[in-house]
Write a protein that binds this DNA or RNA. Sequence first.
DNA 1: AAACAAGCGTAATGTTATAACATGTATATG
DNA 2: CATATACATGTTATAACATTACGCTTGTTT
Lengths: 155, 155
Amino acid sequence: MTTNNHAHLHQIHTHIAGPAQHAFEAAGGHWTVMRKSVFEAVAAEGAPRTAYEITDHVSSALGRKIGANTIYRILELFIEHNLVSRIESQNTYVACDHPQNPADCIFLVCSGCGKTTHLDDQATSEQVRALATATGFTPDRMVIEANGRCVGCSL
Amino acid sequence: MTTNNHAHLHQIHTHIAGPAQHAFEAAGGHWTVMRKSVFEAVAAEGAPRTAYEITDHVSSALGRKIGANTIYRILELFIEHNLVSRIESQNTYVACDHPQNPADCIFLVCSGCGKTTHLDDQATSEQVRALATATGFTPDRMVIEANGRCVGCSL
DNA sequence: AAACAAGCGTAATGTTATAACATGTATATG
DNA sequence: CATATACATGTTATAACATTACGCTTGTTT
């Protein structure tokens, strides 16, 4: 092995490795063209995007029609690896800054402009977890979202 | 006015007024047969129910086919009046115990049996609100959910 | 009675997500 | 390098969730 070869491999293993790619590969994942493209689509805008928006974005980036389920598969994979979070109250997806630190994110979703910011507050998310645990519940994934108005839209 | 009359009104203004009905009417809403039926469908089970399950339940309760949009309309109305909460991570709806006290609920959703319990912890939800507010965000509705395993399903 | 609003019906459609199965592509192994 | 294997994606169809547009009936106001 390790005769690292074929030209088309170079196009996959581009050198723009962001933290996302790095974390994903460190976990044994393959950073394929498709996955790279999906990640870029999710990360492209400040606002979270729907799966079908991502589908369109990827389709035009690759110049061919991609099926929705391909996108959903990859989003699910990314969510498992903390590269992406799903905003439950919006049915949208956002890229996650810190794949290293799998903290529970707190999302602030603006109902005016759609922009979403995210906070990490270990103390708060731990408090929610502790509350749940105290009842005998075993929490897995936390969903903490605030819907309201961002600074710009509250005027 | 106030010649309170017609027989069919009596069937609307039944005397089983739970706290939900009471709060709803206090807010100026009309507790119609349809709305009563929807509320009962939502409240019927421990587990939260999807809008289409509610649709089926109401349809068989009333003996005729009810359209999904009728259910969605009423669910939305109930949510505004704190009679019902939507579990965002499940696309389901649950009846709310305390329409009086519009606290932010914390839901514990079991991925095993689907049962959902709800906590009220003012301190925690206030903490999340405070976090949001500190960034200049004006929170409206909070979504705090924990997905995991309930006591029975964690074995 | 006329005007209006609230509540619901009906039908169609839009949006989000998954299932089932086929095909392609990378990697390991003899 | 041939082949086996597992992983990744394509294709098609459909399920699940939600909304729109419009009209009819009923209750309330004038």
